[in-house]
Design a binder for these strands. Sequence first.
RNA 1: GCCGGUGUGGCGGAAUGGCAGACGCGCCAGACUCAAAAUCUGGUAUCCGCAAGGGUGUGUGGGUUCGAGUCCCACCGCCGGCACCA
Length: 909
Amino acid sequence: MSTPERRKPFPFDLFEPKWQHAWLDRATFHVPNPGDPAFDPSRPKFYVLDMFPYPSGAGLHVGHPEGYTATDIIGRAKKRQGFNVLHPMGWDAFGLPAEQYAIKTGQHPRVTIAANVAHFKGQLQRIGFGYDWQREVNTTDPGYYRWTQWIFLQLYHSWFNPETGKAEPIATYPGTDPDSVRLAYVSEAPVNWCPALGTVLANEEVIDGKSEVGGHPVERRPLRQWMLRITAYAQRLIDELDGLDWPESIKLHQRNWIGRSEGAEVHFAIAGSSEQGAWGQSPSPAESPCSPPPAPCSITVFTTRPDTLYGATYMVLAPEHRLVDTLVTDEQLTAVEEYREKTARKSDLERTELAKDKTGVWTGAFAINPVNDQKIPIWIADYVLLGYGTGAIMAVPAHDERDWEFARKFALPIRAVVSPTPSLGLGGGSSPCEAEPLECFVGEGYAIHSGPLDGLPTAAAKEEILMLLEQRGLGERTINYKLRDWLFSRQRYWGEPFPIVWEGGRHHAIPESELPLIPPDLEDFKPTGTAEPPLAKATDWLRYHRVHHERGEPKASAFPLPSLSAIEGAEPAHGLATRETNTMPQWAGSCWYYLRYLDAQNPERFVGTDAERYWMGGGKPGGVDLYVGGTEHAVLHLLYARFWHKVLFDLGHVSTPEPFQRLVNQGLILGEDGQKMSKSRGNVVNPDDVIQQYGADALRCYEMFMGPLEQTKPWSMTGVEGIYRFLARVWRLVMEENQAGEWVVSAGVQDVPADKALLKVVHATTKKVTEDIEALAFNTALAQMMICCNALTAANPRPLSAVRTLLHVLNPFAPHLTEELWDRLGGEGLLADTPWPAYDPALLIEDEVEMPVQVNGKMRDKIVVPKDAPMADIEIAAQAAPNVLPHLEGKTIKKIVVVPGRLVNIVVG
RNA sequence: GCCGGUGUGGCGGAAUGGCAGACGCGCCAGACUCAAAAUCUGGUAUCCGCAAGGGUGUGUGGGUUCGAGUCCCACCGCCGGCACCA
């Protein structure tokens, strides 16, 4: 015989779907835009945003609902507190994860994505999230990526004007070669090529020499690629963090990633290539045949310590440096070539992680240290990176760990020029001292053995040498950033095609009227295995036929597009032009999705002006009031989105300089074993199973009760049961079973006034929950509601008004249960539409207060005194307390500290 | 190596410089039950004590203060990130 399933403590399986449908049918969480008939301009706006998911085949894991529940609680509470709440959701569906999944299953990504989106959406709806589904976006929808392509064209048609510090239309560029300054440009630089994935990757997508997706090896390879000039915004991306309410750790992370460092570029003449001795002889740069701007006979280095220039005893170029070929002597040619080949074969991993042991070879050439005319050897070594600074350094082994190591290994001279203390420098003067220091000193101190700099503290020495270098044209102040331009093209099928055509080796934008540019419907969308993108297989699509616009140029065009024929003098209608076959990276769609939500259906613009001003407005730099997501996006997504937003802001398309005002990172949820959840560990918790067994409200409340939102914390199934029991107690507060086994409203709930103590608990709960939601302290809000529930359970009869208040404040956490009980108790309309309760602070004040009494800081007894008893009375009562007396015996009272309403401390000696 | 975070009962965690351990889990006892589950009630840091009460206690060691989990200094452990960026 089959055992009937044990009866559930409350019928969540029946009422949860019911209320989910009610919210959908009534569009409870739809919010109108300015201009819509239902729009209420008297309400303030609140834009609360989740990081939208990749709809992968695996479905949601319990990490997703953590942040999503937090924002849902905020959104539901704010709505009931009188805000127009925008809380949307969408799908980040282009890119590698989706495409890899499609390849694995052999189905077209369009098909798998549609299925995955349906799956994800169903899961989210079963948790009861109050999203405005009328604003749903999908980055792979032509109506969406049309505008991703449009934004790319804005980048393509713009340049960063250093004078104004802003992006401007390319037409304002005074130079002759606009292609050299566009924010979207083509580069031939070496890139991270991943053979297994068949694509290049951004620096950020390569971890330890392996691809972030899949962990495949990555190698360096020169390829023609689209780049976005994010480095132009480096300074603004640092500076404008200041106005944002982000965790300091994330701001710091971004600052470090951008990696600003102040220093100098110094020009070193190459010995033998021309006359040298610029320091003492020719103060005027114009007179020197070999003076800067750097001619081929000099090497420019970047340094943050120009004050150590006198200690530069050799020089190192990156092995790939352009000048190596011209510098190398015949004797050293073989060694250099061998070394360069060996380096090229090394993976990034070998070059950095494993290779703490320095390697390098001498080129045979010498440079001249411009301050003392010393001949110093020029080496190549792979500890110098081509991509940073000028790809060349002056080596100061006495004051740089890496140079020190290298100099020791190859027996190069080491010369101390900074002393940690001023006294050590006294005897030194300017006399050369070749005695090698015993250890490397990288800190700041006082210059020694440095001619005119001697005795100066490091900061002043830097200033002095910079002045001298600049006077003589031997160097200049520079600021360098670690941040590189953003490699923006991928050799994959599943991404936005570029709105670009090639003709005679040159690129041109297609007109906006031709957007969206839809990719060809390839049957075989797998990577080609070569650097040739899959789109190149679509021969028909590839051929570009210029569309003649009978109705003239499209209206939204911000800048007149150059005519192809005008530039090339060619006849484009004959198929001479071919489309760009690269596609955009996954990040493209997520760079601006928060803007599309504002006006998701707009066919005319990427976002309507009024909608953008309203939802992003509020007088702060960032428009989104609260953005919740994981730390894994601390630099990539958040930096890219800020960059695009600033470009759009500069060009006048959006009204704020920053996208996200307040950012909160939810913490990682670990498995029950305290380990990171993963399939291989078998500790993955599926939210569907939790809902099946305990209901959506229990899932939501447990995720919030686990601990502080931002903290990493382990899952516990018994913890879920604890919350489940709490929800069941709330249910039984209102409902009981009759003899037929049906749930009916309990006779214990009566319309009677609450007594004073109960009233206090209820109002204290309203206060605490209201404040804790604001502070995102959901765990303590739930703890208070448990206290309230326990107090109500003990009350007989249970006052209806008090029960209702608990339902009010519990509603954002457990929306289904509270909606059901609200309905059973005869509440009007949906609880989700009901105004948030107020509390009366007067009810929280006690007539009498209990005060602990300490003697010398140790708790001894407690006294109860009237709320506003005079200090003197309190002191007397405290000294008379039974458990205090023995501790005062034989001692003299030195002092009595009375903190009104808190405690008394009697100090005795 | 550098940067950030974090250390509180058996567990998750709570605590504007003012009663450490709220709330929940677990455990123990009791009620209900023929019995169990569920539910309800009470207890539960640790040591001494029959108890009243007392000693100790928020990673370690110092300091500031009438009073420190909280503030300051120096360490230690764990977690995360960056990593030859000149």
